[in-house]
Write a protein that binds this DNA or RNA. Structure first.
Length: 428
DNA sequence: TCTGGGGTCCTAGGACCC
DNA sequence: TCTGGGGTCCTAGGACCC
């Protein structure tokens, strides 16, 4: 039995390319929400030295000099392509864990009769993803999820493997781990990588051979699980059903600095509406709401170079009973915002987080307080339906002003090829 | 002289993931 | 001028209980 990790290469870029073949072979990048940072790059863009997470404006010159093709995030398209990719996988294996928008773990077991080898299974998946979706994917197989991750990265890095890497023998595993930088392991971020380096651990093999007590002490039980997985003992199993969400949040920036409570309330209403839609879509109720407010930490005062008066504050308001009604939650959110608002700052973000989530069917009426207002919840569901049909925010609360001056930065958006009738390609 | 020994719950902070 | 937006898990320490 082997774990497999199927990962779409440069996923967002590949989604754009699937519908615009002229982008093949050219440097392409995709931006974060509101066109702020670079979140996906084609191999050609990577080769130019365009870094992940860099703000767009810092790369302007490089982009113009090399005619890099730029796209805003088109989540309708990426989400739909992701769903199609995951459903393609179920044609090959029974057990699929959707791990992220572009990755899935699979369990490859008992397919020897169908495919000549595990490599054969991998190649078949790759070929089908290309044929059905025009998505390039890489596949790694290993004794554990962590080893499958390692194999996946090798499949991407070594062209001679043709997108499929199998680590199923002690020799192959050891050799791979001896050359594998410890910082590239799943579960080792910048902090741990630095700490490990100071202790002369630079390869995955050295980490695998470190004493358990030491790992436990400095990397907690998560580190210990990682080490056991490297040794071939599965500690992270396939999660076939999506675990219930524990929180839902929204904290997009404004794209400009905001000093007044009125505009903050407007933004808060908009974020909350978004969160509540997610909440209802997942059939959940929310028991408490946290609001936070912050200034821009990047902004510096000219002259001394110190950050402009920073401010951060947050407040959590518990609801008398869980609800998913937008107006009901908004009342508490706005009272929270008022309690932490301070004059004299230019705010960059107002964020909102819904926590204490419970499934809708758990709702119960309190003994001394009224239960969730069923009519208000039904009303919100109707609003969702109407907005789904006629467009985002067609129906909205009055405190969410309609402000056409706000620059909605999505300058490079591609059509929603697969989810909007008007955007479907025509074949002539 | 000698000053108990269990628990639970909550929060903040730190690490990580895509 | 312009700097992403979601999530998860673990631990230590404090408050409180009997």
């Amino acid at each position: 039995m082997l774990y497999g990790l199927v990962d779409a290469n440069n996923f967002y870029v590949s989604c754009e390319r699937a519908f615009q073949p002229r982008l093949e072979g050219k440097p392409v990048i995709v931006l974060s929400n509101r066109d702020g940072c670079i979140v996906a790059r084609s191999n050609e863009a990577k080769a130019l030295g365009i870094k992940m997470g860099k703000p767009l404006f810092e790369c302007k010159e490089l982009i113009e000099a090399h005619n890099v093709q730029v796209f805003s995030s088109n989540y309708s398209l990426y989400g739909d392509m992701s769903r199609r990719l995951m459903s393609t996988l179920t044609h090959f294996v029974e057990e699929v864990e959707v791990y992220s928008i572009d990755e899935a773990f699979i369990l490859a077991d008992g397919y020897e009769g169908v495919y000549p080898s595990i490599r054969g299974l991998g190649s078949a998946i790759r070929q089908t993803a290309d044929q059905w979706l025009r998505l390039p994917v890489s596949i790694g197989f290993g004794l554990t999820k962590t080893l499958a991750k390692v194999a996946n990265r090798l499949a991407k890095a070594r062209p001679e493997l043709e997108g499929v890497c199998v680590l199923d023998t002690p020799g192959a595993i050891s050799q791979a781990l001896e050359e594998y930088p410890v910082g590239d392991l799943w579960g080792v971020g910048g902090r741990y990588a630095g700490m490990l380096k100071r202790n002369n651990i630079t390869t995955a093999a050295q980490l695998r051979d470190a004493p358990d007590d030491w790992i436990r002490q400095f990397m907690t039980v998560n580190g210990l699980r990682l080490v056991h997985e490297l040794r071939g003992t599965p500690c992270k199993l396939l999660e076939l059903s999506q675990p219930a969400r524990k929180s839902i949040c929204s904290e997009p920036g404004f794209g400009q600095l905001v000093p007044d409570l009125e505009t903050l309330t407007d933004a808060l209403t908009s974020h909350l509406s978004r969160c509540c839609e997610k909440l209802r879509k997942q059939d959940l109720l929310c028991g408490s709401v946290t609001v936070y407010l912050k200034t821009n930490r990047h902004r510096k005062t000219p002259g001394n170079g110190l950050p402009v008066k920073p401010y951060y504050n947050s407040v959590t308001v518990e609801l008398p009973h869980p609800t998913s009604s937008t107006p009901a939650l908004l009342k508490y959110a706005i009272s929270g915002l008022k309690s932490i608002f301070a004059f004299g700052y230019n705010y960059q973000k107002v964020g909102i987080m819904l926590t204490d989530l419970v499934p809708f069917h758990y709702r119960q009426k309190g003994i001394f307080v009224e239960g969730p207002n069923e009519k208000m919840i039904q009303l919100s569901a109707v609003v969702d339906k109407i907005n789904h049909r006629y467009g985002k925010d067609k129906l909205r609360l009055a405190s969410q002003m309609y402000n056409p001056d706000w620059p909605m930065k999505l300058a490079y958006l591609s059509p929603k090829y697969t989810t909007r009738w008007e955007d479907i390609l025509e074949v002539k």
